[in-house]
Design a binder for these strands. Structure first.
Length: 426
RNA sequence: GGAGAGGUGGCAGAGUGGUCGAAUGCGCUCGACUUGAAAUCGAGUGUACCGAAAGGUACCGUGGGUUCGAAUCCCACCCUCUCCGCCA
C-alpha cells in the first residue's frame, strides 16, 4: 500500500511513478476523499471532545451532591443528546470515506524504484548478466522435457487429468525422487546461506492475501475454499510474510531470513493455451521460497544478496541462466524492483523464468503492518520485505531434463544432486 | 461435531457504569547508592490518527446496541484453551 501522506505531499511525483507502470492512475478522486475525510475527522473529534467532557462533568456533579434528576444535570444530558445526534451523522460518513480511501489504496500498485529501468512491457526488460554455456546444448536431438519425461516414465499428465484436471502432473518413481531431492538440496543450500527453514500453512486467510497484495485485485488468480475464509497459497511468500503481520519487531531481530518449501497453487486464469505442455505452467507446483524482512537502509543490499542466493542454486546445478531486471511496465503489483532469473531450455532455445526476486520496499509492510523499533529511538518504522524463488522446483526439473539429456535419451543427474538420489542417471 | 472456560498494555494480572489509557507485580530504560555487580531507592516506559502548535481523538478480541458517560451492561460474530467424540 502506498503512503497516503506521501500521496498528499507529492501527488504529482507519485502519479508520474505510477504511470511508468502503464495504465491509468488518477489520484485526484483519492485526494478529494482524503481531504473530506480529514475535515470530518476534525469536526467529529471536536464534538467527541465536548461530549467526553459532558460525561465527566455529570459524573463530578453527581459525586459532588447534585441531584441526578435536577435541572443542572438535565441540561448537560440534553447537550449530550444533541451532540450524540450530530455525531451519529458524522460517524457513518467518516467511516464510509475511510473505507473508500482504503479500497482505492489497496488497488494501487507499488511505485517502481528509482533504479528500475523505464519501459512499457517485457520487451524492455534489461539483461543484467548471463551464466553458463547456453550453446553447449542446441535444440538438435533434444526432446522437450515433457516428451523425455513421459518416455522415462517419470511423470504422467494424462492420469492426472482424471484425478484433478488439466495442468496437473503426477511425478512417478525417479521423477518423484528427483523432485524431492531438488527440494532438499535447495533448502539445504539456503539454510547454509543463513535462512531459517519454515514449513508454514499452505491455506491462508483473506487478510493474509490482502497483506501481501494478492487481494483484493487478483482474487481470480487463487483457489478459494468454498466454506471457509481460506485460500490455497499461490506462493510461500504469503504465509512467510504474514507470520509477522501486525508485529513491532526490535531492530536487532532484523534481518529475518526464511526459506520454505511449499506447494503453490495458481488458477492461471487467462493463460489458456499458454505453456499447455510440460511442467512450466501448472495449477500446482512446488517451490522453495526465500523471504527477507529487513530495515530500509539495508534492503537494496539484501535484495542483491537474495538474488545471489537464488543464483547459487542454478550455478550449483550447472544450469545456464541469465538475470533480467524487469522494467517498470513489467513489474509485479507489489514490487518496487525485481530481478528475474531465467534458465536455459535448449529444446525451445529460450530462457524461461525460474525465479523472481522482488524488493517490495514498505509496500507489503504497510499492508501487513510490520514495523520495527530501534532501541532508544522513539516511534516505529515500516520494515522492507523481499521475496524470491530459490527456485521453482518443477521448472528446475524441466531444465535438468533438457540440459542434462544425453543423445541416447538418458538424463544425467547433476553432480550436486547425486548425494540426494540413489541414481546418477535417470 | 458436543460441553465448558476465557480473550485487558512486552509478560503476568486487577478492574462489573463515572476524571480508566487503565491498579499492582515482573521486565525494560535512565538516575542515585556501590571499586564493580547484586540488592535497594527514585523517575520513566503502548500504538495510531488529526493539528503549525497548544492540544484533541481512537484503541481493553471484532462489529453493533443501551447511556449524558461503557474495559465494565445487552446482542451477534471471531479466536484461543480444556474435556469428550472423530481422525492423519
Amino acid at each position: 500500500m502506498l503512503d497516503i501522506k506521501q500521496i498528499r505531499a507529492n501527488a504529482e511525483a507519485v502519479q508520474a511513478k505510477l504511470s511508468l507502470r502503464g495504465g491509468d492512475y488518477d489520484l485526484q478522486p483519492l485526494l478529494e476523499l482524503d481531504s473530506k475525510q480529514r475535515d470530518i475527522e476534525t469536526r467529529r473529534s471536536q464534538l467527541q471532545s465536548r461530549s467526553n467532557n459532558i460525561g465527566k462533568e455529570v459524573g463530578q456533579k453527581i459525586k459532588g451532591g447534585s441531584d441526578p434528576k435536577g435541572p443542572e444535570v438535565a441540561a448537560l444530558r440534553e447537550e449530550g443528546n444533541s451532540l450524540k445526534k450530530q455525531l451519529a451523522d458524522l460517524e457513518p460518513e467518516e467511516k464510509e470515506l475511510k473505507v473508500k480511501i482504503q479500497d482505492i489504496l489497496l488497488t494501487l500498485p507499488n511505485l517502481p524504484s528509482d533504479s528500475t529501468p523505464e519501459g512499457k512491457s517485457e520487451e524492455e526488460n534489461v539483461e543484467i548478466s548471463r551464466w553458463g554455456d547456453d550453446k553447449k546444448r542446441g535444440p538438435e536431438g533434444i526432446l522437450p522435457h515433457w516428451e523425455i519425461g513421459e518416455k522415462l516414465g517419470i511423470f504422467n499428465f494424462e492420469r492426472s487429468v482424471k484425478v484433478a484436471q488439466s495442468r496437473f502432473v503426477t511425478l512417478m518413481g525417479a521423477g518423484a525422487a528427483l523432485e524431492r531431492a531438488l527440494i532438499s538440496f535447495m533448502l539445504d543450500k539456503q539454510i547454509e546461506a543463513g535462512y531459517i527453514e519454515a514449513l508454514p500453512p499452505i491455506l491462508v486467510n483473506s487478510e493474509s492475501l490482502t497483506a501481501t497484495g494478492q487481494l483484493p485485485k487478483f482474487a481470480e488468480e487463487s483457489f478459494k475454499c468454498a466454506d471457509d475464509d481460506l485460500w490455497l497459497t499461490p506462493t510461500a511468500e504469503v504465509p512467510l510474510v504474514n507470520l509477522y503481520r501486525g508485529d513491532i519487531l526490535d531492530s536487532e531481530q532484523l534481518p529475518i531470513n526464511h526459506c520454505a518449501y511449499t506447494p503453490c497453487f495458481r488458477r492461471e486464469a487467462g493463460s489458456y493455451g499458454r505453456d499447455t505442455r510440460g511442467l512450466i505452467r501448472l495449477h500446482q507446483f512446488n517451490k522453495v521460497e526465500l523471504v527477507k524482512i529487513v530495515s530500509p537502509e539495508t534492503s537494496e543490499a539484501e535484495h542483491e544478496t537474495l538474488r545471489t542466493n537464488a543464483e547459487a542454486i542454478l550455478q550449483a546445478l550447472e544450469l545456464p541462466y541469465r538475470v533480467i531486471e524487469l522494467c517498470s511496465g513489467d513489474l509485479g503489483f507489489g514490487a518496487a524492483k525485481c530481478y528475474d532469473l531465467e534458465v536455459w531450455l535448449p529444446s525451445a532455445e529460450t530462457y524461461r523464468e525460474i525465479s523472481s526476486c522482488s524488493n517490495c520496499y514498505d509496500f507489503q509492510a504497510r499492508r501487513a503492518n510490520i514495523r520495527y523499533k530501534e532501541a532508544g529511538k522513539k516511534g516505529t518504522q515500516f520494515a522492507h520485505t523481499l521475496n524470491g524463488s530459490g527456485l521453482a522446483v518443477g521448472r528446475t526439473m524441466a531444465a535438468i531434463l533438457e540440459n542434462y539429456q544425453e543423445p541416447n535419451g538418458a538424463v544425467k543427474v547433476p553432480t550436486a544432486l547425486q548425494p540426494y538420489l540413489n541414481q546418477d542417471v535417470l
